[in-house]
């Protein structure tokens, strides 16, 4: 399998207002392979979102190296799309205009953009809401639109920062299933940040368990349940128990 992302001895320090230094990440080593679905799992404060932002190019590591396709990551790139927890759609634009944002930045013509937007809207089942504004949509629909927007830019990697964290339990499960469906059709590399053990096991090929203060990698666990997955598969509960025990330490 092709190695897509390499993370070597990454440390990230933040400067607090009082001048104190806090290290959010320390000694992170990780390899992420092409087409892999990775979940970064850990309690809040373990730096998983910071790590994701470093991969996106929105933050730089204080020490260490991050390579993407063999090149060091220094700035955001359209190759690495990102879905945020919430409020990332431009509230003054319609859903279709939001989804066409990536192509718009690329300089694609208006008619072509519209076609791309409608195509991706139908993939997430929002074709009826093309001309609606974000505030007219429910939280779940907004996150679908945010996923469609990231995909419409045709990135190689999809970075997802607790995208379902603000949704109710039912919608969350529905969107997990939908995300897997989209992933199987498009086969992107996905790095998904979550603090839900269940979500991580349900989605990932590999779960990377992290600890906090400072954030470190505790263990990388391969999840080998057959897809489409069921939460009632044999061993599912056992794996949950195993990971919960890891996190408790």
């Amino acid at each position: 399998m092709k190695q897509l992302i390499q993370i070597k001895e990454v440390r990230k320090e933040f400067l607090l207002e009082k001048g104190e230094k806090v290290s959010a990440l320390d000694g992170i080593n990780m390899d992420i392979y092409d087409k892999e679905f990775i979940c970064l799992l850990g309690p809040s404060g373990c730096g998983k979102s910071t790590l994701l932002r470093i991969l996106a190019g929105l933050e730089t590591a204080t020490e260490g190296y991050v390579f993407y396709n063999g090149e060091p990551i220094s700035a955001p790139s359209r190759d690495r799309g990102m879905v945020f927890q919430e409020y990332s759609l431009l509230p003054w634009r319609t859903i279709a205009e939001n989804i066409a944002l990536g192509p718009e930045f690329k300089g694609i013509s208006r008619t072509e953009r519209k076609k791309i937007a409608l195509d991706y809207l139908s993939r997430v089942g929002l074709e009826k809401f093309a001309d609606a504004k974000p505030h007219e949509l429910s939280g779940g629909m907004r996150q679908r639109a945010a996923i469609a927007r990231a995909l419409a830019n045709n990135p190689e990697v999809l970075l997802m920062d607790e995208p379902f964290g603000a949704l109710d339990a039912h919608t969350r499960v529905l969107l997990q299933i939908e995300l897997l469906k989209i992933w199987e059709q498009n086969k992107k590399t996905v790095v998904f940040v979550t603090h839900s053990v269940d979500e991580a096991i349900f989605l990932a090929d590999r779960v990377i368990v992290m600890t906090s203060h400072p954030g470190r990698v505790l263990k990388s666990i391969n999840v080998e349940f057959a897809r489409p997955r069921s939460r009632f598969a044999e061993g599912y509960g056992k794996m949950m128990e195993e990971i919960f025990n890891l996190l408790e330490k």
Partner: peptide
């Protein structure tokens, strides 16, 4: 988030 999401979409 609005600025970040535009940056990752390739905004100049």
């Amino acid at each position: 988030t609005l600025i970040d999401s535009a940056l990752v979409l390739g905004a100049s």
